[in-house]
């Protein structure tokens, strides 16, 4: 018996170790790849080339890497928690309305040209938009998971409509282009200042989400049984929604709307951990980070005219993976 359980633990640990290894390799590669390919031997020395290389590495590539890991991890973790909470494999953090709220806040900063005066206006207003939409969702949706999700969907629709209105009334074609480009998501031109703005929120939100594992496992049996097992469903909802609001709100504020990671990452790891919702949290966060990092590297390596946006790559790469999952699911159903 113990052997069997040790095997289950080993498969989870093995999966986590494998994804970590891939993540480390991708991280190393992402520091070297880009418009300018860097070689490790170029970092040493005090000549201008070495100094320029270190500048690119430390001030451009490293903050971009850290943001990709944080944002991908936040999206993967939040997706895993929401799928566990709703017991619906199609749920993702966008359900909450927080990503569209963050997008609307960021769009406002572009609309009024604030981003031109102060580079951090976009993420800061994005955070404000995320906070506002969360506040509305919580105040309307008090009382249970379904009420919160419905309120989130309503707020999400409202924020998306307001974003469309901003596009509709854009003061100039340039502003409209800026808004559209931002909405497609990107990690280019990000600095340590962006990490400092988003990082603490993402980490705080991630910590709240990590506390939901045990409750999500019990929730596999439905709300009545979970409640009978001593699970405080109100506390679980608060942790999931507040954690997602903080982490996904901050992620969207900095990187724009990046879809599919939150939906896909949990699906990729679920079969390897015996489908237990609590066990997929850490692997889903790591896979989310790896997916986003990989997608960001693709945006840097493919040059067909303008920069390919991050949200476009995650959707284009995510869809075939999703098709594959659907086909596999169809085969497994008799």
């Amino acid at each position: 018996m113990t052997l069997r359980r040790t095997g289950a633990r080993r498969s989870t640990a093995g999966l986590t170790a494998t994804v970590l290894l891939i993540l480390v390799a991708l991280s190393g590669l992402s520091l070297l790849c880009g418009t300018v390919w860097l070689r490790p031997d170029e970092f040493a020395g005090n000549d201008p080339l070495a100094q320029a290389t270190r500048l690119i590495l430390l001030d451009l590539r490293l903050p971009r890497l850290v943001l990709a890991l944080l944002i991908g991890g936040a999206l993967g973790l939040s997706g895993a928690v929401f799928q566990g909470l709703t017991r619906n494999p199609l749920a993702d953090p966008a359900l909450l309305g927080v990503s569209t709220g963050a997008a609307f806040g960021a769009v406002i900063s572009i609309y009024f040209g604030l981003a031109g005066h102060f580079v951090l206006a976009t993420p800061l207003l994005g955070l404000a938009g995320a906070a506002l939409s969360t506040l509305i969702t919580f105040s309307i949706g008090r009382g249970g998971t379904v009420a919160l999700i419905l309120a989130g969907a309503a707020v999400s629709t409202l924020m998306a409509a307001l974003t469309s209105l901003a596009l509709n009334l854009a003061p100039s074609p340039y502003a409209a282009y800026e808004i559209t480009a931002w909405l497609m998501g990107s990690l280019s031109d990000k600095s340590w200042a962006h990490v400092e703005i988003a990082g603490p929120f993402i980490l705080a939100g991630g910590a709240l989400l990590a506390l939901t594992g045990r409750s999500l496992d019990a929730l596999s049996l439905g709300e009545a049984q979970a409640s009978s097992l001593g699970i405080n469903l109100m506390r679980l909802n608060m942790l999931a929604f507040a954690g997602s609001a903080l982490s996904v709100g901050a992620a969207t504020s900095v990187a724009g709307a990046v879809g599919f990671i939150g939906l896909l990452a949990p699906h990729l790891v679920r079969p390897f951990v015996g489908y237990q919702p609590g066990r997929i949290l850490l692997p889903a966060a790591l896979v989310g980070a790896a997916l986003l990092l990989g997608a960001d590297m693709v945006t840097r390596l493919i040059h067909i005219g303008a920069e390919i946006k991050l949200g476009v790559v995650t959707a284009l790469l995510g869809t075939p993976l999703f098709f594959w999952l659907v086909v596999r699911l169809r085969r497994s159903i008799p």
Binding site: R214, Q225, Y275
Partner: peptide
């Protein structure tokens, strides 16, 4: 409760273990 069910395809052993939550 009436008609209890499990929402994810977790192994029976893990389902039973949930009673120890």
């Amino acid at each position: 409760p009436q008609n209890p069910r499990c929402e994810w395809p977790i192994p029976v052993e893990r389902l039973v273990a949930l009673g120890l939550t």
